[in-house]
């Protein structure tokens, strides 16, 4: 049940990403290219997703003390705005600005069947694995 529902929710997410244009690097890069071939579309993606999620979360948390399939909500407990958050986010932006792919755009883009997406996702997975390895080597592993 848990698996089947996750698959369906993943399909809604992937369809949303694909039709929104977030899986298209050229469109994403144009959103950030104010000084060039600017395409404002992605503000509608971010706006639509943000407002829907904000209302949706409010309804969910208001209606139920726990999720349907689990004992409790898994909400990030870390409240600290630290150097690692800032540095990591700045680095992510450099990669996103170079490639036009963010993780949520790239994974559904795999379904469009282009080799370039596979190349990007392979490199991204390597980047995640290497960074996790380095962080664990520097300090005891934290449960995600």
């Amino acid at each position: 049940m848990r698996i089947a529902i996750a698959l369906l929710i993943g399909m809604i997410f992937g369809l949303g990403i694909a039709i929104s244009g977030m899986a298209n690097p050229a469109k994403v890069l144009n959103f950030f290219d104010f000084a060039g071939s600017w395409d404002l579309s992605l503000i509608f993606v971010m706006g639509g997703a943000l407002v829907t999620t904000a209302i949706g979360y409010r309804l969910v948390f208001g209606a139920r003390a726990e999720p349907v399939l689990e004992a409790a909500y898994y909400l990030p407990a870390n409240r600290m705005i630290d150097q690692r958050l800032i540095t990591g986010s700045a680095i992510f932006g450099i990669g996103w600005g170079i490639s036009g792919f963010c993780p949520g755009g790239a994974i559904p883009a795999l379904g469009l069947g282009y080799g370039s997406t596979v190349l990007f996702v392979g490199a991204m997975v390597a980047g995640i694995a290497l960074t996790r390895f380095a962080l664990n080597a520097l300090s005891p592993p934290a449960r995600a």
Partner: peptide, 22 residues
Amino acid sequence: FLSLAGGILIGLAATLLMAFHG
């Protein structure tokens, strides 16, 4: 319009994942 529709679907998926899986 397509981008807004896509954004709403993304938000719907985020809401459902919280509702079912937390």
